[in-house]
């Protein structure tokens, strides 16, 4: 497989973690209570840790970006390959939980398969990540249920969140050219094979949470091709500010 294909494939995985981690990081000190605040930032930390492993690998393959920090901080918006779901801004806690849950179920199924990648580095990162992601999924899944059956207000907010985020779920399974090539090379995960399991699992949990799946949904995509929602620019402004203002500065 070509180096650039592998590089782009890695970014497709890592950027989801980086951007979702950044969103969770924004909540540090603003969680609804101390325990959930700590939990969300702990999850962010896991996601950043996984991102670092992916970016270190990507930097080895890139002719332009020499270090993990270059990959994280110096790319332009169009070069970020994360799905639209993870860049959606924090509103209320139920929304944060719904976004997390819809991603965690996917992420678990994804790293489960990535463990068997022919690429040794990706396989090693996935074997490490799956243990962490299983805790994330348990946390967000529990909260989906708790809020769904909680009070009338929590149920209503949770339902709003699901209604608002559902349009971004299909993109998780979009197979880009890079995905196709990586699957053929024995390195990547065939996302279309995960789709049925994903929607079945999510449907069961939503049902238990007395939440409903939107009828006749329409789906958005574009993130995986680098075409993002208007929120992405703001995230990058925040994320890249220091490196753009003081190039090459280190802590």
């Amino acid at each position: 497989m070509e180096k650039t294909t592998l590089y782009n494939y890695i970014l497709g995985i890592a950027d989801n973690n980086l951007i979702l981690g950044q969103r969770l990081g924004e909540l540090c000190g603003h969680g609804p209570n101390l325990e959930t605040d700590i939990a969300l930032t702990n999850i962010a930390l896991d996601l950043f840790g996984q991102t670092r492993s992916y970016y270190q690998y990507a930097a080895k393959l890139s002719a332009i970006y020499k270090t993990e920090d270059d990959v994280a901080y110096l790319r332009k918006e169009r070069e970020y390959k994360n799905v639209l779901l993870v860049e959606q801004p924090n509103t209320h806690f139920g929304f944060v939980i719904a976004r997390q849950y819809l991603f965690d179920v996917f992420n678990y199924l994804f790293v489960e398969k990535l463990q068997h990648s022919k690429d040794e580095t990706l396989s090693a990162i996935a074997k490490k990540a799956i243990k962490e992601v299983s805790y994330h999924k348990r946390f967000s899944g529990d909260w989906v249920k708790r809020l769904g059956v909680g009070t009338e207000e929590s149920n209503q907010k949770m339902q709003e969140a699901i209604d608002g985020l559902w349009q971004y779920t299909n993109e998780l399974f979009e197979m880009t050219e890079v995905d196709d090539l990586s699957v053929r090379g024995g390195i990547g995960v065939n996302l279309s094979e995960l789709k049925e399991t994903y929607f079945k699992e999510v449907a069961e949990v939503l049902k238990e949470a007395t939440l409903t799946i939107p009828e006749n949904p329409y789906f958005q995509k574009g993130g995986k091709q680098g075409i993002h929602t208007e929120h992405m620019g703001y995230i990058l402004a925040d994320l890249q500010y220091i490196q753009r203002t003081y190039p090459n500065m280190t802590w």
Partner: peptide, 26 residues
Amino acid sequence: VSQFGSTACKALFKCDDCQEPFDYFK
């Protein structure tokens, strides 16, 4: 009390007998 304690590797528990909160290494 919480699946995530002071660090990612720990969960927060509370004892119902002595009332002390404590970390559990997951």
